[in-house]
């Protein structure tokens, strides 16, 4: 038979109450924070996985902000191209009309054609958020001079919209506005028509028709190009949003406590703590040797 000393009885009572209290406190902390994992030692592998997911989530959110900014620039460029194309379409109509009408009428059309040409020059010097959109990376000054000469460049401004995926937010000025290498310079086409109409030059007007038609096609292609990039941005954003939900779910599964289980555990641990107190009280009451009086 094992001998039990008085110290052991008190020690046992203390240990029982302390361990019950510790379990109750742990459950209460989980219930209060809703977290199952608050320190790396609780689940080192889970902690690393959650930290990696959080970093990926933060990176994804940053990509989403980049995508949003990129979309703003691309939409501004698209709006500008729409305006420019509307001008070109109207100029094409003026050219058709000018080619089949008398001299007096051509002069009447010339004023509108000149206005469209000037508006076209102003349009391609459009700025958004402090940036001249059509100058490539030369974003600080208007890319087109009054005479139509281009002082920008055709360097892309790439924006990272997802991990390993970039989109060029600079509009394709060279190919679709300047008509390089074998297309038509849109602004030149507009100016040629206005000049031909002003000079009542019916041959010049007829010669301007085809470049304007091709310019219109170029601008359609430019808008399609921008539209494609916007789709890419939208797609990346959607994928990122879906990925974020998955990541948050993954983090939650690692870190968050099962509320139902936590409150069940808390109720159980509170009961155990009360039982430990009562049993310790009984244990200690038998240890005071009063029975010998």
């Amino acid at each position: 038979m094992s001998r039990i000393s008085t110290s052991q009885i008190f020690q046992l009572a203390h240990t029982n109450v302390a361990s019950a209290r510790e379990r109750e406190t742990q459950s209460a902390e989980k219930a209060a924070t809703g977290k199952n994992l608050s320190r790396p030692s609780q689940d080192p592998a889970g902690w690393v996985q959650a930290a990696a997911s959080k970093a990926q989530l933060a990176e994804g959110e940053s990509h989403l902000r980049v995508a949003s900014l990129s979309r703003n620039f691309l939409e501004a460029a698209e709006d500008t191209l729409v305006q420019l194309q509307e001008g070109v379409q109207r100029a094409y109509e003026l050219a058709i009309a000018g080619a089949s009408t008398g001299g007096g009428d051509r002069l009447a059309l010339a004023a509108e054609a000149r206005t469209i040409s000037q508006a076209g020059s102003a349009t391609v010097n459009a700025a958004f958020a402090g940036r001249y959109l059509f100058g490539g990376t030369q974003t600080a000054r208007p890319p087109f001079a009054e005479d139509g000469s281009f002082s920008g460049n055709q360097s892309p401004i790439e924006a990272p919209i997802a991990r390993g995926l970039r989109v060029n937010v600079a509009p394709p000025t060279g190919k679709f506005v300047l008509g390089q290498p074998d297309g038509d310079d849109v602004l030149t086409s507009l100016r040629q028509l206005a000049t031909a109409l002003e000079n009542d030059d019916v041959d010049g007007v007829r010669e301007a028709i085809e470049p304007l038609r091709r310019s219109n096609e170029q601008l359609s292609l430019a808008r399609a190009d921008i539209g494609g990039r916007l789709s890419l941005v939208e797609g990346a954003g959607d994928a990122q949003a879906a990925g974020s939900i998955n990541l948050q779910d993954s983090i939650s599964r690692i870190e968050d406590a099962d509320v139902l289980k936590v409150f069940t555990d808390l109720a159980r641990d509170q009961t155990v703590f009360r039982a430990a107190l009562q049993s310790s009280q009984r244990l200690l009451s038998s240890a005071d040797a009063s029975f010998l009086k």
Binding site: A58, E59, E61, S62, H63, R65, V66, L69, S70, F73, A129, G130, R131, T139, A140, I157, E158, A159, P160, V169
Partner: peptide, 13 residues
């Protein structure tokens, strides 16, 4: 890295 990435879209800002 997020701030750098966002600046890359608008480096003139």
């Amino acid at each position: 890295f997020g701030a750098v990435r966002e600046l890359s879209v608008q480096p003139e800002a």
